[in-house]
Nucleic acid binder design. Structure first.
Lengths: 346, 346
DNA sequence: CTGAAAGCGCTTACAG
DNA sequence: CTGAAAGCGCTTACAG
């Protein structure tokens, strides 16, 4: 591998001059150096650059599960921005383990210029230590309990929960269940809080047997849905608080041959690839995904002064919308499914 | 940040001794050094280590699209192995662009100890140059035209194509379409070749209007499916050669109100999260995903001597199986859908 | 087992 | 604008 010394020798200048040329400074022998670089196929040694400069040009990205389509999309957005700006992306998966997350962050602190993190819970020490060590951190999707002091890209989970509740109320449901995500995470709490808020304002209280706390995973949602079905009086609608939760619930309803939305309406949080293909097509609360990743990376680079964008807010909260498809409908009447159902369930 | 010198001073030894201790050699002052490391929270500077050793302890992973559930799963497998072994994972996305891929590989060659690559086409120069530069490369999912000389983890695409054809033949189909992936990629070619081979052996020729070449993406599959439907004599079965292809075809059939499998049977390649939830549930050719990633990473580390595993073959080809669900059934008879249909399409 | 020293490939104040 | 020199934080033959 050619070094800067080889280039210097060939171009008849000193290594310092080559270095200056490479950093974009004006030098007299620019042409000769350019030629030498090309002929030798010179590429700077990143380890040497980073040892000298103290900067790694690498960004750590820590997510709970890259196979979750939401995080895959977010990472895609991050990758496109980081590559464009000449940063490398170090990917790490925590498998929803706070312990692994803490280890990863401690390791990464020395190896990257900044970190984008979707924390497992909102009660964590690791990110605080990170901040103390001076590594910029941007949160995505999830926040810390005292999150106000960190940069973050989030969606309006509270509003998402509210809209789901409003949608079900408008259809006439009163016996409504929710399968929430873990309450120690921001999306888990806020989606539930928004949902409850609207129900309560409408004078509907959600009894404990309908207010179920899951973990954002499919298996638990499956089990909880079976529990809902075994109630003396099952709900007429379920709000599932994440894409995997929705899958678990749909599988349970499917296995138990429950008619959606004839017997039970379902509204999910996060669209699925196959959302429009399901029968009935799935009604969901939808949010930007790739865009969140793009913004998070830009926010982080902004901290380094590598992003020209002026006045990016330190916390970005994106809007959320409902996609009404066919899995929600008015509740069944006393003598069976509401007649409106057939019309909606094409 | 504490350096090895700080630790040495505190422990009353030389930096060389600290370095030896950290590398696992026996030293007299082990206890004092351990204490100093803990007290100072010392972590070695990777840039310095890598500058000195010439090794980066980083692996480059280059995939066409991280939001494709197949690649997300593969990357998850890779990440778990690399973290376990103390390697960092650098993720890059090519967006199916051979040009971007070439750039990425050239950059990475200097920055990583090895690369795992899902190449965009089988006719590429970049990986060959990589090999010349001495960086170990392992292919995953896709191969080069002269691939025999590279390590690789693949699935038996030929067999996958064959099994899909056998399944459709066994159901009685004779007018059968396939929407292939790009023929410049190994999976695109082999899946098609296996499929055609079995049809031909059965005396069925696939006319050009049923032998459609897509690009593994959803949009093109959607358009090609519409074309199939506009034929004077549409097929009674379609084999879609990838997960996204399947989505495009299902959406087209759905939009055109085609009854699956009453009018047309569909068998896909790669299962979908929602495969069992679709109505009808989707019949697919299924293959290991996370496991492919795990094996690819182990294969690569093996090249470094970092993986104890003995005798890992240089090329691993994993088996493939069919998951029979409800989207395939016998073709409709002259007077409408086959009667068997109702029974299968629960 | 241990330490002094050289060197990995860059960058950058310093002096010219 | 340019070059000589020091130094980023490690590792490792070399000598003891």
């Amino acid at each position: 591998m050619a070094t800067i010394h080889d280039v210097a020798a060939r171009a008849g200048v000193s290594p310092a001059t080559v270095s200056r040329f490479l950093r974009g400074q004006r030098v007299r022998s620019a042409e000769a150096i350019r030629a030498a670089v090309d002929e030798l196929g010179f590429q700077p040694n990143l380890a040497a650059q980073s040892l000298k400069s103290g900067r790694t040009r690498a960004i750590g990205v820590v997510v709970p599960d890259i196979t979750n389509p939401y995080f895959a999309a977010v990472v895609k957005g991050m990758e496109s921005v980081s590559r464009e700006r000449g940063y490398r992306l170090l990917l790490a998966n925590t498998d929803e383990s706070a312990e692994r997350e803490a280890e990863l962050l401690a390791e990464m602190a020395r190896q990257v210029d900044g970190i984008i993190l979707a924390p497992v819970t909102e009660h964590e020490e690791a990110p605080l230590e990170l901040r103390d060590s001076g590594v910029p951190v941007v949160f995505i999707d999830r926040d810390l309990a005292d999150g106000e002091s960190f940069d973050a890209v989030l969606v309006d989970n509270l509003e998402g929960g509210r809209k789901a509740a409003e949608h079900l109320l408008a259809l006439g449901h009163t016996r409504i269940a929710m399968i929430s995500g873990g309450q120690e995470s921001t999306p888990g709490r806020y989606r539930r809080a928004g949902f409850m808020e609207v129900l309560e304002a409408a004078g509907i209280e959600m009894p404990p047997e309908l207010d179920l706390i899951g973990d954002f995973r499919e298996e638990r949602a499956y089990q909880l849905t079976l529990a809902l079905l075994s109630l003396v009086e099952p709900p007429t609608a379920i709000f599932t608080a994440s894409n995997l939760t929705t899958l678990g619930t749909l599988k349970a309803l499917h296995d138990m041959r429950v008619d959606i939305p004839g017997q039970i309406s379902v509204i999910g949080f996060d669209d699925l690839d196959t959302g429009p293909l399901l029968r009935p097509a799935l009604t969901v609360v939808d949010r930007p995904m790739v865009e969140q990743g793009v913004l998070a990376m830009r926010l982080l680079l902004h901290r380094f002064g590598d992003e020209e964008t002026q006045d990016l807010p330190r916390r970005i909260v994106l809007g959320i919308k409902i996609i009404e498809r066919a899995s929600t409908a008015p509740p069944p009447g006393p003598h069976g499914p509401a007649t409106r159902r057939t019309g909606r369930n094409r």
